[in-house]
Design a protein around this nucleic acid. Structure first.
Length: 870
RNA sequence: GCGGGUGUGGCGGAACCGGUAGACGCGGCGGACUCAAAAUCCGUUUCUGGUGACAGAGUGUCGGUUCGAGUCCGACCACCCGCACCA
């Protein structure tokens, strides 16, 4: 009998060292086994990790270790999303260099991650701030430029006045910068864009192929891309000054409501608006007022519709009355044509506008069953289905038929030289602005020349490296202020020119790193052969917060790279899993200061106090672990007390992986007990049975029962892990330990252990160790040694399941009488329903219930249930 | 406003296709071992009534389909998430 406790603190570093020395997690591209690529979203090196960061890495590690045991050549790499604003902020605050700060953080966090015992191939580690990495990214940028996926234009940008940078639309949350929280302003700048909209339809269609993605994420992307089908309609301007355009084009998804139109509205940013405003100070002032309007959620919701009557009129293309042309604050320049026709009766925004400016409200869609003489629009527009009326040739048609009829008619109608109407598809998706006025990012490899314009940096001059000697003592972009860096000669004409001083959005860095990992260390960063071999990532794991941006950008990148011949695939991530966060209680002292969990202790009566004092502590609701609220647990503390296997076990247990999980001391103690329990079960088995026991000819009932449980365990846990149902896998291991423990105790009491049972016990221990190995790998190695194994458990195969042992000979069926469970019956597994029925009717409890009458009906569901209807 | 999700004991949560609701863990209670404690082990733990075998109720609410509903359908309530003046 083993009496010693499992000493995780001693064993864990020892096994980590052995794994490392033998290089067993190093992956080779020429390995003949089938490939499996598992990847967790790489971290930003912000400083230190806490246990809350560990959950997705542990989940990925379970998958990686499991797949290795199942015979796959597994790629499981790690890297660093290393460019970004915090490094610059740290540089400003601490008077250091962003690179130094970043690489120091990487060193710290690498050691912390290693503490978790992750089976990572560290030889493939990358940081996106390595010149080799961003040099390849510059090459990709130039290929995108050549291939038409990059362009430059003047654009109104979201300007973050605190971080002094441009933000993507996606980085503006409630009108504030996603990092600084500052209210975003609008400015016009020349910006570089990735033409993601060129692939909008493909990116939408591709979602249908991603059957191992969560539906939620696919839906979010679908909505983000936002496809709509409608009609472009050109309206002739009646009374415009000669220098103005002759027409206005609008986009509508409701051409059926054209007879209900009562006005046209232009966006404040529309070219016609600008042209009019040049000679109309009042309009110019109105446009200015619209600009000032905030973009925050609350403001948009409460913002009143504002309009300015330009005095212009347009003709109705279907012969209705002429319509006034307004400029309106609610019309977006970025969507459609920046101009709309307003149909107040059937669009809430138009209705609000019409009521405010006294415009007609003419319903043209009659709800089913409504009386045309009575139906009126009050404060709510009607956007349901119905039948067209008040609409000339459309009267009586359904909405879809009316849409079609209008489109067909206007396609043939001519205004000037073109058709009045043209069917059009619109997307909500906008092109991706990637220019950032920041130092710590990938330089955009362009040189601006007075005479040649923007010129690509020649291939042999890549990478364009960031200068090291920069200062952060003034606001703005250090690259722009650098005395020499930007001054170069034009590669085309040789004349004086200046470098592009903008750097790329860091989302560019993370849009292809998974392809970089495919290349062996020391080889070119993006190789078609290697990328095609390893990609797509078989299982990608990360937070739901990246459901749109990172994942959509990466999908765009791979598709663009394919079109440029750099890779052969279309979708980078075949399987996606979004894991929940780890949350923890928060603690505050009487002054309202946050306390770390280790600063809090419980008195005997259960009240929490500040450690070593009698100051009361307020316990707050569990929240996402964060440094600012101090509700963090550093991995070192866990490693030094319970061991990281306990942390791993706890992170996998109880809560489904996609939900948030609360870290508690009770939970980690429970994990500790179970780790010790496995250790004891294995140790007791090793003491009770000989290591070299041969498989006996036959097994007694007790041994068969144990073996059935053993083999079912291996089969079911394999299935659970494949489906990432770690909490269920953990529960099964617990249940098995209960069965195993009972048999073990009985065997020990009996004194002598027959050979067949000894074999079954050994087998149970071996299986148990293998099954938990992906989850608690250090303990598994230690147990492996205990059982007299010579090789590493980390390199062992998943146990071979004997299919005969998965099915039982008999089944116990519940007996229901009138749908209520009244008893049960045990029958042979493949008993005929008629025989089961007969056996059931012979039972006393059934006879009693029937009380001499014949049953109305008996339903026998083989292997499930018997229901007697009395 | 639009779209999506969730709701099961004191708690985290199981329950594949409609077939024994509450697996497994946490916590609680009782016990064994111990001089005592820790550790470990055993029993018990949905609620109500009953000493008990047992009976009744029970998966947010109301209704429906079915021999049978946590699971399917309809309406509603609560909470969570995403998008948000996208014409």
């Amino acid at each position: 009998m083993s009496t010693e406790r499992y000493n995780a603190r001693e064993a864990e570093p020892r096994w980590q060292k052995i794994w490392d020395e033998r290089g067993i997690f190093r992956t080779r591209n020429d390995d003949p086994r089938p490939k499996y690529y598992v990847l967790e979203m790489f971290p930003y090196p912000s400083g230190r990790i806490h246990i809350g960061h560990g959950r997705n890495y542990v989940m990925g590690d379970v998958v990686a270790r499991f797949k290795r045991m199942k015979g796959f050549n597994v790629l499981h790499p790690m890297g660093w999303d290393a460019f970004g604003l915090p490094a610059e902020n740290a540089a400003i605050e601490r008077n250091t260099h962003p690179g130094k700060w970043t690489y120091e953080n990487i060193a710290t966090m690498r050691e912390q991650l290693k503490l978790l015992g992750l089976s990572l191939d560290w030889s493939r580690e990358i940081a996106t701030c390595d010149p080799e990495y961003y040099g390849e990214q510059q090459r990709i940028f130039l290929e995108f430029l050549k291939g038409g996926f990059v362009y430059r234009r003047e654009s109104e940008v979201n300007w973050d006045p605190v971080d002094n940078t441009v933000l993507a639309n996606e980085q503006v949350i409630d009108g504030r910068g996603w990092r600084s929280g500052a209210l975003v302003e609008r400015r016009k700048l020349a910006q570089w864009f990735f033409r993601i909209t060129a692939l909008a339809q493909e990116l939408l269609d591709g979602l249908d192929t991603l059957d191992r993605w969560p539906d939620k994420v696919r839906l979010m992307q679908r909505n983000w891309i936002g496809r709509s089908e409608g009609l472009h309609v050109r309206f002739a301007l009646e009374n415009a000054a000669p220098e103005l355009p002759r027409e206005v084009k609008v986009y509508t998804t409701r051409p059926d409501t054209l007879f209900g139109a009562s006005f046209l509205a232009l966006s404040p940013g529309h070219p016609l608006t600008e042209a009019l405003a040049a000679n109309d100070p009042a309009l110019a002032a109105f446009v200015e007022e619209c600009r000032r309007g905030g973009t925050s959620t609350a403001e948009i919701e409460t913002q009143e519709k504002m309009g300015y009557d330009t005095g212009l009129k347009v003709a109705h293309p279907l012969g209705g009355p002429h319509l006034p042309v307004y400029v309106a604050n609610f019309v977006l320049m970025e969507y459609g044509t920046g101009a709309i026709f307003g149909c107040p009766a059937h669009d809430q925004r138009d209705l609000d506008f019409a009521r405010k400016y006294g415009l007609p409200v003419t319903p043209v869609v009659l709800p089913p069953g409504a009386d045309p003489a009575e139906f009126e629009i009050g404060d709510v527009a009607y956007d349901g289905e119905g039948t067209l009326y008040h609409s000339g040739f459309l009267d009586g048609l359904s909405i879809p038929d009316a849409k079609e009829a209008v489109a067909a008619k206007l396609e043939k109608q001519i205004l000037g030289n073109d058709a009045v109407g043209e069917r059009a598809v619109n997307f909500r998706l906008r092109d991706w602005g990637i220019s950032r006025q920041r130092y710590w990012g990938c330089p955009i490899p362009i040189i601006h020349c007075e005479s040649c314009g923007p010129v690509p940096v020649p291939e042999d001059q890549l990478p364009v490296r960031l200068p090291d000697d920069v200062s952060f003592d003034a606001p703005g972009n250090p690259l722009d202020r650098h005395p020499t860096w930007k001054h170069v000669n034009c590669p085309q004409c040789g004349g004086p020119a200046r470098r592009e001083t903008d750097t790329m959005d860091t989302f560019v860095d993370s849009s292809w790193y998974f392809a970089r990992f495919a290349s062996e260390p020391g080889t070119a960063p993006l190789q078609r052969g290697a990328a095609d071999h390893w990609l797509p990532v078989d299982q990608y794991i990360g937070g739901i917060e990246h459901a749109i941006l990172h994942l959509l950008y990466s999908r765009f990148f791979i598709r663009a790279l394919k079109k440029l011949g750099r890779v052969s695939l279309e979708e980078p991530f075949a399987g996606l899993f979004t894991q929940g966060m780890i949350v923890h209680e928060t603690y505050k002292d009487p002054e309202g200061r946050w306390l770390f969990p280790e600063e809090v202790e419980k008195r005997e009566d259960g009240t929490p106090v500040k450690a070593g004092t009698s100051e009361p502590v307020t316990i707050g609701a569990p929240e996402k672990m964060s440094k600012s609220k101090k509700n963090v647990v550093p991995p070192e503390i866990v490693a030094d007390t319970f061991g990281v296997d306990c942390a791993r076990w706890f992170m996998l247990a109880d809560t489904p992986p996609e939900r948030d999980s609360e870290w508690t001391s009770a939970g980690i103690e429970g994990a500790w007990r179970f780790v010790q329990r496995i250790w004891r079960l294995v140790g007791d088995t090793a003491a009770l049975t000989p290591a070299d026991i041969a498989r006996p000819e036959s097994f007694g009932p007790e041994s068969i029962a144990l073996r059935r449980a053993t083999h079912k365990l291996a089969a079911q846990v394999a299935d659970d892990v494949e489906r990432l149902r770690f909490n269920v896998a953990v529960a099964r291991v617990h249940a098995f330990a209960n069965v195993f423990g009972d048999v073990l105790i009985a065997a020990r009491k009996a004194g002598n252990v027959p050979a067949d049972l000894a074999f079954a016990l050994r087998e149970a221990a071996r299986f148990l160790v293998a099954v938990v190995a992906p989850m608690v790998p250090h303990l598994a190695e230690e147990c492996g040694t205990l059982l007299g194994g010579t090789g590493l458990v980390a390199e062992a195969a998943w146990p071979l399941v004997e299919p005969d042992l998965l099915v039982d000979d008999t089944v116990t069926l519940p007996i229901q009488i009138n749908g209520k469970r009244r008893g049960e019956i045990t029958v042979p597994k493949d008993a005929a329903p008629a025989d089961v029925e007969k056996a059931v009717l012979e039972l006393d409890l059934v006879a009693q219930a029937l009380d001499g009458r014949a049953p109305k009906r008996i339903i026998v569901v083989p292997q499930r249930i018997v229901n007697v209807v009395a």
